[in-house]
Design a protein around this nucleic acid. Structure first.
Lengths: 223, 223
DNA sequence: AGCTTTTTTCATATAATTTTCACAAAAAAA
DNA sequence: TTTTTTTGTGAAAATTATATGAAAAAAGCT
């Protein structure tokens, strides 16, 4: 579950980030509308927390643009005195708003409510044949026996699973799992895939090599 | 722990009832708002599971009436498309809602969460094998012998126990046990976990290290 | 204040994970 | 078939995370 926090004040972003992380949400930050637009174009974001009042591109402008791109629910933050009118017309069934100052607790409640409402609840487990992932427990089972994966292997597997059927390039994998700032060897991924495959035992073939591209997690039995 | 299930469809009531009983909740059923009102006037009910859409007296009307009578937490069931607006104003801190179709498992999780939150379920003790926690007495026993834990150790243990099976990050632990305003060293947690483990003696392995994440309390015997 | 207990910090040891790299194997292209 | 490109693999090296002991700091107690 990834939240995008858009606010020009670092302090506010940090506070929200801190609280969000206690609930295990991942967070991405943007300082202004431009940055935010870039992010929603390139990353999977489940919810946007948006300060309406910002320099450069203000919240409303961003919102209009954003709604054209993707349908991501938004929690709008605004000072009590800002024009309420502007908020009219927004889909309060999908979105929500909160006036500053707000209590972090309330924000968290709203976040939860919205994510739930929009059906974005992360399932707490994945299962395919004898392969099971217990997300909250960070555990993976094969035929009901837990297999021990390292963090990277686990992350890899989760990413594969949520992108089943899609060929993922090494670059994509690097960016998503290692982060944008990783400049390591390409063989690194191969090595991790190797180890993951080994650990998956009978399910090792679920991770197919897509030559010239990367890897793909398949859940059908085509040969 | 008695749950009142209010829904006009017998099928739904039955499903909920069945699942609820697996968790040892008693259930009482009502087919409509009138019946439900009667019941909460005359019986001790800890939680209401309420379909918002019903003939005769609908859920909202019932809810308004019910809130006058007693302060019982409510889980509202609604179809995804029903007007969200109506739900505004309800105390999402106390109540909760779920859109149909929902997984029984999720419903159970919510029930648990709400009962816990509203302090109704606070069992006064926890027991797993020879490990016992006497909450009111703030005491912990191992094989019927009291072990002396410091406050932090006790809090840690309780938090682990109520989140059994879930990998808890250091951040989460810090925030929940130390509070949001603690900016201490990460090793602090390790140290407390170490001490707690030592004090747990034979049960020290219930607290597993989840490398790269944090710790997890496990209650099953997988190796 | 002095003493005890608890909490926190921190340095070091230990263990596990991650990365690199050279070469083998496989696939694709020539 | 031969060459070229790409991927697989094992093992070592580098890095990172956790466990632990001991000491400092803080909080309680009498």
């Amino acid at each position: 579950m990834r939240l995008l926090i858009v606010d020009d004040e670092k302090l506010i972003r940090d506070v929200i980030k801190t609280y969000a992380e206690t609930e295990n949400y991942e967070t991405v930050e943007a300082e202004n509308g431009f940055e935010a637009l870039e992010i929603i174009k390139n990353q999977k974001i489940d919810l946007i927390i948006l300060d309406i009042m910002m320099p450069k591109m203000d919240g409303m402008t961003f919102l209009e643009e954003a709604k054209k791109t993707a349908n991501i629910p938004v929690i709008i933050l605004s000072a009590r005195n800002e024009e309420y009118d502007k908020l009219r017309g927004f889909d309060l069934g999908t979105d929500d708003y909160l006036t500053k100052p707000f209590s972090p607790k309330e924000l968290l409640a709203r976040i939860k409510a919205i994510l739930r409402r929009s059906g974005k609840m992360t399932p707490d487990n994945y299962e395919y044949k004898g392969l099971k992932i217990d997300y909250p427990g960070h555990a993976v089972f094969i035929d009901n026996k837990e297999i021990k994966l390292t963090l990277k292997e686990y992350e890899l597997l989760c990413y594969f699973v949520t992108n089943a059927g899609i060929a993922l390039s090494r670059n994509q994998l690097l960016n998503k799992i290692w982060g944008y700032d990783f400049f390591g060897d390409d063989r690194t991924i191969d090595t991790h895939v190797k180890m993951l495959r080994n650990n998956l035992g009978p399910y090792r073939d679920l991770i197919k090599t897509v030559r010239g591209v990367g890897y793909k997690f398949v859940i059908d039995d085509e040969k």
